[in-house]
């Protein structure tokens, strides 16, 4: 796993690569806190996430919920196939509201 966090004032860009599972959950949680709390515009690049489980998913959901409550923007700019499958399987693609190429329900 690697997580690359770039914070530029109110703009943030986070790239997550590798596995997003329970084994790494604590690390991701810690690494996501600053950009999520500081940035008004946060972009998450999940293009190279190879695996995601419930712990990874709920981190994303929690971050998204926070952005909704504070009126900031969190967008997922790239999904790996795995991430997309999970969002579809949980019907959360709409919740994140990002441009998703494929949706199962429609």
């Amino acid at each position: 796993m690697t997580i690359t966090v770039n914070i530029n004032g109110a703009m943030g860009h986070v790239v997550i690569e590798g596995e997003m599972t329970i084994f790494e959950a604590a690390e991701y949680h810690a690494a996501l806190m600053p950009p999520v709390t500081q940035c008004h515009m946060l972009e998450l690049d999940l293009t190279n996430v190879t695996e995601i489980d419930t712990s990874g998913l709920q981190l994303l959901v929690s971050a998204k919920l926070r952005s909704q409550q504070t009126g900031s923007t969190l967008s997922i700019t790239g999904h790996s196939e795995t991430v997309q499958q999970v969002l579809d399987a949980t019907d959360l693609a709409g919740f994140f509201g990002d441009q998703v190429v494929l949706t199962a329900s429609e």
């Binding site: 959950a25 604590a26 949680h29 709390t37 709920q58 959901v61 929690s62 399987a89 959360l92």
Partner: peptide, 18 residues
């Protein structure tokens, strides 16, 4: 169809990621 429930999910800073 599936509905994912996030009701009990605490705010990011209060959640235990595990």
């Amino acid at each position: 169809s599936i509905v994912t429930l996030t009701d009990t999910l605490p705010p990011l800073d209060a959640m235990d990621p595990e």
